[in-house]
Computed example of a mutant assay.
Amino acid sequence: MPIGVWLLYWPCGWSIAMAADAGCFPDAKMLTLFAVGAAVMRGAGCTINDMWDKDIDKAVERTRDRPIAKGIISQGDALKFLAGQLSVALAVLLQLNWYSVFLGASSLGLVVIYPLMKRITYWPQLVLGMTFNWGALLGWSAIHGSVDWAVCLPLYAAGVCWTIIYDTIYAHQDVADDLLIGIKSTAIKFGENTKLFLSLFSVGMVSNLLLSGVMADQTLP
C-alpha cells in the first residue's frame, strides 16, 4: 500500500489492537475493514486536496504535474470520482455500529477543510494530524460501541504529534515555493528550530503512547 494509506491506517490498527481482550489477537475483520477504509479515504482526501489546490499546485515544483493542476482531469470529473470514493467509504463505515458510523462521519469536516488551512495558519500539520488520526478513536468504538476517552484521547494526541513530526519534515521540501506563493506550514514556522520542536513533539508522542497503554492496562512485553 502507498505510504499515505499506512499513515492513515496505523492509528486505526493501534486502537483496534488496544481494544482487544487481554490475551487475544485484534479483530481480523475490523483490521480488514479499516484497511479498506483507510485506502479509500486516503484517496478521497487526495482528491479533495487536489481540487482545492489546483492553482497552488501549478506554482509548486513538486505538484505541478498533478492531473487536475495540468488540466488532464476536470474539476467536474474529479467531483464524480470523489463521489464514488465517498460512496465506497460509506459502505465500509456502515459495517460498523451506529456510534462508530456517526463518529466516522463527523471526521469528514476535517477532511474537507484541511487543504484550506495552509492558506490561513502556520499549523496545517496540526489539522492534518487531527484528521489522519481519527482512527485512534474510531477503532476502539468499532470494537466496544463507544470511545474510552481515558485510553483513546492520549492515543489520538500521540498520533497528532506523530503526524506533525513526519509532515513537517515532508513540508521542508516545499519551503522555497511556499514562501513565494504565501503558503504556510510548520516547516516555515519552526524554521531553524525545527529539530528542537520535533524533539518536543517526539516526547509528546511517546508520553501519550505510554499514558494510553497505562490507561488500557497494558503490560510490558
Rank of each mutant, 00 (worst) to 15 (best):
Y9I: 01
A89V: 06
I48M: 13
Y99A: 11
D53L: 12
L8C: 01
S107W: 04
W140Q: 07
K184I: 10
A17M: 11
T186N: 12
D50T: 09
D174K: 13
V160W: 00
A38I: 04
I164S: 07
N49H: 11
H144L: 04
T121L: 09
L137M: 15
G45M: 06
V5Y: 00
G76K: 13
L198C: 04
K184R: 15
L108C: 08
Y166I: 09
V147Y: 03
L211M: 14
R62Q: 12
W123H: 15
N133H: 06
K189Y: 15
Q75C: 04
A89R: 00
I188G: 05
A150Q: 14
T194K: 08
A176W: 02
I73T: 15
G145E: 08
L209C: 07
V5P: 00
F102P: 06
N97D: 11
W98T: 14
G76Y: 08
G159P: 09
V214R: 07
A158K: 13
R119L: 07
P124A: 10
L93Q: 01
T219V: 14
W134H: 03
W52L: 04
A136T: 05
S185K: 12
G104V: 04
L94G: 12
V60G: 06
I188F: 03
Y166G: 12
G45Y: 02
A17Q: 01
V88K: 01
D178P: 03
Y156V: 04
V127T: 14
V111Y: 02
L196H: 10
F190S: 01
G139P: 06
A59G: 00
L128M: 14
L210N: 02
A157Q: 07
A91P: 05
A39Y: 09
G135A: 10
N193D: 14
S199P: 00
W14A: 11
A136Y: 03
A59S: 10
A35L: 15
L220W: 14
V151Y: 04
G76M: 03
D65K: 15
M30Q: 12
L211A: 10
Q218H: 12
S107M: 13
R64F: 03
W149H: 05
W134T: 02
S141Q: 09
W149P: 04
R62Y: 12
A83V: 14
Q125M: 05
L96K: 03
P2M: 08
Y170H: 13
A105P: 13
K70S: 14
S207M: 12
D148P: 02
K54P: 02
I120K: 11
T47Q: 11
L198G: 04
G76V: 08
T63W: 01
V214A: 10
K70F: 01
G23R: 07
A142H: 05
V203L: 15
M18W: 08
L94W: 08
A17R: 06
G43Q: 05
C161A: 13
L8D: 00
L210P: 03
Q173P: 05
N97M: 10
S199W: 14
C24L: 09
G71E: 07
Y122S: 13
Q75I: 13
H144C: 03
Q75N: 11
S199A: 14
G4D: 10
Y166A: 09
Y122G: 01
V111Q: 06
A59W: 00
M205P: 07
V203W: 10
G4F: 00
L209A: 05
G191K: 13
D50Y: 03
C161H: 11
W162P: 05
Y122L: 03
I16N: 03
C161G: 09
